[in-house]
Nucleic acid binder design. Structure first.
Length: 588
RNA sequence: GGUCCCGUAGCUCAGUAGGAUAGAGCGAUUGAUUCCUAAUCAAUAGGUCAGGGGUUCGAAUCCCUUCGGGAUCACCA
């Protein structure tokens, strides 16, 4: 049984009412209902839900908003689930649903458990989320970690709403950087053989992470590359280095709980002729030409030279200038291989592609979207989510990092210090295009301003109540099946209903976050849900023991509240599952 | 100079693709612990949504413009 999305449910009801009005001649035919929305009221005094239906349809139908609203209200009042409906303001219809409607959600949640809110699609769509794709030239840093979490959670969101999702990593193993990597490894290799290599030359990677790789290579191959020409060792060392770095990166990802379904290699794509193929296709469509770009407008003219280049007509697809696809040495630019890569994705059946990039690649978005339009003949769509920098802090002070001074803090070090769950949650506490301060001290504090703790604590409190309940009831009396049969009519406190309503909004929250590509909404939702629970908890004070969850002289009331508490634990667990975090049972 | 992102309470930020009287947390002030974990909660104070114009029933949200901050700008990925 699929859980009810009450926004969609009420919208469907309203559309039915409108269709009836059309049939009865009270509303002109062929109205466009697309603009109609059903939303939570901002001010709860206005009711549970509001719809703009009358305002949206008033003008095209030639009716006064209030007259049309009155007719819709009449229809709404016929529904069993509607307690009240009234016209307000410029033509809003405010709706209050009966308590029993909300109580019924608890049964749904208890039935569904952690899968509450999931949707199954009859014909599942496919979506490809490509994220991390860090160059295989070293361990991951904290910024990569943010992209990893955002991509991973976004992919989880799509799974939850019924899509077939592929989590993909694109290995940039074909450009200059991996040659540099190979040369850097060569130095470390010589070092491992006991040769004094001195300082690592400028332009090579000085990172210590290559020392181990150098030792391994020396162990495997002995001294066979010593004294050889670069042309002889470059390729095998490159392969060795990339393997070593990808192993490192996969370990980093695993420690963050991120596992990709597919790793695509840029080099494979080039060597298998994928780029040649896309170029032939584009040439046939006259989208490639030899030309000279005009210099960028502005002051940066110092080293500009007029140079004929092989260009892609990106301007035909919304980009600002045409883009080069070949370097002067004849090899493909990154853009060229990226076009081939996205064609490959499209051919694998992904009409919807989402890429997570660092904000420093923002200037690249337009051209890639232009390219996708061109190669898929506008059949595919690419959305790029940019994630901004993470500022690592320690107790309010920025952490100074320098690769040269060796004070660079890797993602792995942060995970080891604060734990993967904390990292995953904190990465979602800002929308992805805003900079994020990550304070290594504060995220471990057990206080209200640590959102991870705050949410986990609410789950732990649920568990605590359920543990305590064992003293009042036998185990079978508070099984899920038994709780489902409790008398929900006992749940009448505004705080209780507010909490249940928020739980009932989970399916819509999930869907909205997925469709808007905004995983951070889940973290905010969980925080709000927890706040609602903590507030209710505090109501059961010494003066008002009747609002405690466990009321010893009233077992039926207590069982209903246990059903609510159990449901809440399930919704929180469901939300944490999307984020990729284990809920905790207790915190002591 | 071009392009993109951003500008919301003293601070850090939300604002559910245009909805009603703009919301949280921190900080400040004042309260609540014989109680299921007070690691929490409640209340008060705090705003020209950077400024100006426009679009419409209605704008923090969309368009134009000015100011301010950031990213990026042909053969790096």
């Amino acid at each position: 049984m699929a859980a009810l999305n009450y926004f969609e449910y009420m919208r469907d009801n309203i559309v039915d009412i409108l269709n009836d009005l059309v049939v009865s001649g009270n509303l002109p035919q062929s109205q466009n209902f697309k603009q109609i929305s059903v939303e939570p009221t901002r001010d709860k005094a206005h009711g549970d839900l509001a719809t703009n239906a009358a305002m949206v349809l008033a003008k095209p139908s030639g009716l006064k908003p209030h007259d049309l609203a009155g007719q819709i209200v009449a229809g709404l009042l016929q529904l069993d689930c509607v307690l009240s409906a009234e016209v307000a303001g410029p033509g809003f219809i405010n709706i209050i649903l009966v308590d029993s409607f909300w109580h019924a959600r608890l049964s749904e949640i208890l039935d569904a458990g952690i899968s509450y809110g999931e949707t199954k699609l009859d014909e599942p769509k496919s979506v490809n989320v490509e994220y991390v794709s860090a160059n295989p030239t070293g361990p991951m840093h904290v910024g990569h970690g943010r992209g990893a979490v955002i991509g991973d959670v976004l992919a989880n969101l799509f799974s939850k709403i019924g899509y077939n999702v592929t989590k993909e990593y694109y290995i940039n193993d074909a450009g200059n950087q991996v040659d540099v990597l190979a040369r850097s490894l060569h130095i470390r290799y010589l070092e491992a053989l006991g040769i004094d290599v001195g300082e690592i030359p400028d332009g090579l990677y000085p990172g210590e992470y290559l020392i181990d790789a150098g030792k391994e290579l020396a162990k495997k191959d002995g001294s066979m590359w010593q004294g050889e020409k670069e042309a002889n060792w470059l390729k095998p060392l490159r392969l060795f280095a990339i393997d070593a770095m990808m192993k490192l990166i996969r370990e980093d990802l695993l420690s963050l709980g991120v596992v990709h379904d597919t790793f695509s290699s840029e080099r494979n794509l080039v060597e298998s002729g994928g780029v040649d193929e896309i170029m032939t296709i584009l040439e046939d469509r006259k989208l490639i030409y030899e030309g000279v770009l005009s210099p960028p407008k502005g002051k940066r003219l110092d080293d500009w030279e007029k140079r004929p280049q092989t260009l892609f007509r990106a301007t035909l697809f919304g980009d600002d200038v045409d883009r080069p696809i070949k370097k002067s040495d004849g090899s493909w630019t990154y853009f060229a291989t990226d076009m081939a890569y996205h064609l490959d994705k499209f051919r694998r059946g992904f009409r919807v592609m989402i890429n997570i990039w660092g904000a420093d690649h923002g200037g690249y978005v337009k051209r890639m979207q232009a390219a996708v339009k061109a190669i898929t003949k506008k059949d595919g769509e690419l959305d790029v989510q940019l994630c901004q920098m993470v500022n690592l802090m320690d107790n309010g002070e920025p952490v100074k990092m320098s690769k040269r001074a060796g004070t660079f803090i890797t993602l792995r070090e942060v995970i080891d210090k604060v734990g993967k769950d904390v990292v995953r949650f904190i990465m979602l506490t800002r929308k992805n295009d805003a900079q994020l301060d990550f304070d290594l001290t504060k995220v471990l504090e057990q206080s209200r301003d640590n959102p991870v703790f705050y949410v986990q604590y609410s789950h732990a409190r649920c568990c605590s109540v359920l543990r305590q309940a064992m003293e009042m009831f036998k185990v079978e009396e508070i099984s899920i099946a038994a709780l489902k049969n409790s008398n929900y009519k006992n749940l009448t406190d505004p705080g209780e209903l507010a909490l249940i309503k928020m739980m009932a909004a989970w399916p819509q929250t999930l869907k909205g976050a997925a469709q808007a590509h905004e995983p951070h909404r889940i973290a905010y939702y969980l925080h709000d849900l927890s706040a609602s629970f903590h507030a209710l908890w505090a109501k059961g004070s010494k003066e008002n023991t009747s609002l405690r969850f466990l009321v010893e002289d009233n077992p039926p009331l207590t069982l209903a509240r246990l059903a609510m508490v159990k449901s809440l634990a399930m919704v929180i667990a469901s939300g944490l599952e999307v984020i990729g975090i284990e809920p905790v049972q207790e915190m002591r």
